[in-house]
């Protein structure tokens, strides 16, 4: 299945901003993070199709998946 993965802030360094990835069915949000060599401890927010999700959320064909480190402002 195809999933669009988006990275933000320093997660982009040495990786990418946005990439369409071919993933096996039943891939979880957490597995994508592990495959990218991102430390789960550094993850702040995950969003799937503009809604918050968790490491164990299972991705679906056509999903847009955004991975943010811990950030803030205001």
């Amino acid at each position: 299945m195809q999933v669009q993965v988006k990275l933000f802030a320093f997660f982009r360094e040495g990786r990418f901003i946005k990439e369409d990835k071919e993933l096996p069915t039943d891939t979880t949000a957490g597995q994508v993070i592990d495959d990218l060599n991102i430390d789960r401890e550094e993850v702040g927010v995950l969003m799937l199709n503009s809604r918050h999700c968790k490491f164990d959320t299972v991705l679906q064909e056509g999903d847009i998946y955004a991975i943010f480190p811990v950030i803030g402002g205001g």
Binding site: K6, F8, A9, F10, E42, G44, V45, M47, S50, A66, F68, P69, V70, I71, G72, G73, G74
Partner: peptide, 23 residues
């Protein structure tokens, strides 16, 4: 705190992309 560290790098403007992503 990691938020402090991100603020020092990107400023408060780090929020544009995440608030946009959240709709």
């Amino acid at each position: 705190h990691p938020v402090s560290q991100a603020l020092g790098t990107y400023g408060t403007n780090v929020l544009v992309n995440i608030i946009n992503e959240a709709g």
